[in-house]
Design a protein around this nucleic acid. Sequence first.
DNA 1: AGTGCGGCCTGTCCGC
DNA 2: TGCGGACAGGCCGCAC
Length: 271
Amino acid sequence: MPELPEVETVLRGIRPILIKKTVEKIIVRQPKLRWPIPAKLASYLKQQVLRDIFRRGKYLLFQFDTGILLIHLGMSGRLCVLAQPCSAKKHDHMDIIFSNNIHLRYTDPRKFGAILWIKNNWQAHPLLAHLGIEPLLKSFTGKYLWEKAQGRKVSIKTFLMNAHIVTGIGNIYATESLFEAGILPQTPAGKLSLSNYNKLAKACKKVLRKAILKGGTTLKDYRQSDGTQGHFHLDIQIYGKAKQPCPRCKTILKTDRIGQRSSVYCPKCQR
DNA sequence: AGTGCGGCCTGTCCGC
DNA sequence: TGCGGACAGGCCGCAC
């Protein structure tokens, strides 16, 4: 499940390979993703030079002279650079073939992802315009969160996963960050103190940075010709570890549904 | 405006 | 062993 660190890792992996390359051809095998892949995408991209690739939240944005290709990996999406083209498998929905015969292959079993074309002014695009702050920026602080949280009754976990507040923090990293900060995920966002939010913002950065660092070690996988990605070796503290002992105090970790999301926490370490 | 929930989709796991 | 159902997940878009 690609979250911000995984998307950042993909970005760092593919950017040096694809930048300044020209699109020769597009193959769309399955246009039905979260929204349809634009029917005219091939005509938009043909013979266009890829100027840059950047990230906003979990969206990857491919800058061309005539517009921006937006790619979201949803839950199960992957992007692979294939130096040697190989036959497409069941969920390989799109290939972009660049000069030098480099294939960028989009794979997504659950089709929760998206591939869209933005003609101009991407900042105003409805998917991007209302995104919150990037959590790795200096300006993402406890004070920022605390101010946004005033009067909010939703749980801090739901609040933290709200992309309109802060982008890129999904279930895994919300769970891990709240554990790191020692904050109970059910706490109403508006009730936490500024010092709690200072701890939380720090914890988010620490957890995300660590994951990106780890991701760096898997970068080579994006260059493998067979397209296998290899698993992201994250050191998860408590996500998915309900009923196991807390890594800090050995209390049995509890699980709860918060905002329709499974949530693991330590009832002793998190208050 | 803020909140809660349904829906999209398929692989994996569990119980019968 | 085979099968059905629950579940997981990001995030939009709707209803209240």
